[in-house]
């Protein structure tokens, strides 16, 4: 909690209680008093974004490689699955995962703790369904990002690697991949913020993420509706902004000197 003053996302609930809030309009006082509850939602949103992006990467990276280097039925399967996942609204995917998919999601809750947010509980079954849904959909998009990046590395790089005696796999591993990964950073940046924003759709399956918790709050206190939603919108904006800047920095850090990408 001591760390908390370092970041704008961070808020000390104990200090908040002690804060003299009278100078704030009552509806904003309501928002501040319920920071704890919203912060828990913020935590769920952050964790869900992370798990979904990770699953999307783990599944999407091989999918992209298969679309470029694969052949036959496997490639057709991967590209067809990709087309379908990219064509269906995320809300349909999430609802499908939650209500239909024969995946035995565990029930119950698990506790988490994040710096500056504190501890919060996550409903396991909705969280798992949301991770799988957002993750698979993201995999379909990340596959496209990697596919494009792999294809953008010129064929001459493969020829040159082969001409010093590297095998095709070695060439992909040591020459094509390192360049393709760098080139996928901008696309990955977009994908990251899309997933972050789309975690809000897990509202549809009742996961208590940021938007759902704000809904719970403003249903309870109907005069503070606008304040609550604006407040969480600002939180979302800060998160996308910070994500974008961080990935910008990463892109610059890993950029090849003098290179075009």
């Amino acid at each position: 909690m001591v760390l908390s003053s370092a970041s704008p996302l961070v808020f000390d609930p104990i200090a908040a209680q002690a804060l003299p809030l009278e100078w704030l309009p009552p509806d904003w006082q309501f928002v501040v008093r319920n920071w704890d509850y919203l912060a828990g939602g913020l935590g769920v949103t952050i964790v869900l974004t992370a798990t979904s992006i990770l699953l999307g990467f783990l599944a999407g990276f091989p999918m992209g490689a298969i679309e470029v280097y694969g052949s036959g039925p496997l490639k057709r399967l991967v590209s067809t699955v990709g087309v379908v996942l990219r064509a269906i609204p995320i809300v349909v995917i999430l609802v499908f995962m939650f209500f239909v998919a024969p995946i035995p999601f565990p029930s119950g809750e698990f506790g988490m703790w994040l710096p500056g947010i504190g501890s919060f509980d996550i409903g396991l079954s909705a969280f798992a369904a949301a991770t799988v849904g957002l993750g698979l959909r993201s995999a379909a998009y990340q596959a496209q990002i990697f596919r494009g990046a792999l294809q953008s590395v010129s064929g001459g790089q493969m020829e040159a690697a082969r001409s010093v005696g590297m095998s095709k796999l070695q060439a992909i591993r040591h020459v094509i991949m390192p360049q393709a990964l760098r080139r996928s950073i901008p696309g990955f940046q977009n994908e990251f913020t899309i997933v972050l924003k789309d975690t809000s759709v897990a509202f549809a399956i009742g996961l208590a993420e940021l938007l759902k918790r704000s809904y719970d709050l403003f249903v309870e206190s109907t005069t503070a509706v606008l304040e609550v939603i604006l407040f969480i919108s600002i939180l979302y904006f800060i998160m996308t902004f910070v994500t974008n800047r961080t990935l910008d920095y990463l892109g610059e850090y890993y950029a090849i000197p003098g290179g075009e990408g």
């Binding site: 913020t193 924003k197 789309d198 975690t199 809000s200 759709v201 509202f203 938007l211 704000s214 809904y215 939603i229 969480i232 919108s233 979302y236 904006f237 996308t240 902004f241």
Partner: peptide, 9 residues
């Protein structure tokens, strides 16, 4: 920078 669903809300 904000979710469409939040905007609709």
């Amino acid at each position: 920078g904000t979710p469409l669903l939040a905007q609709l809300f």
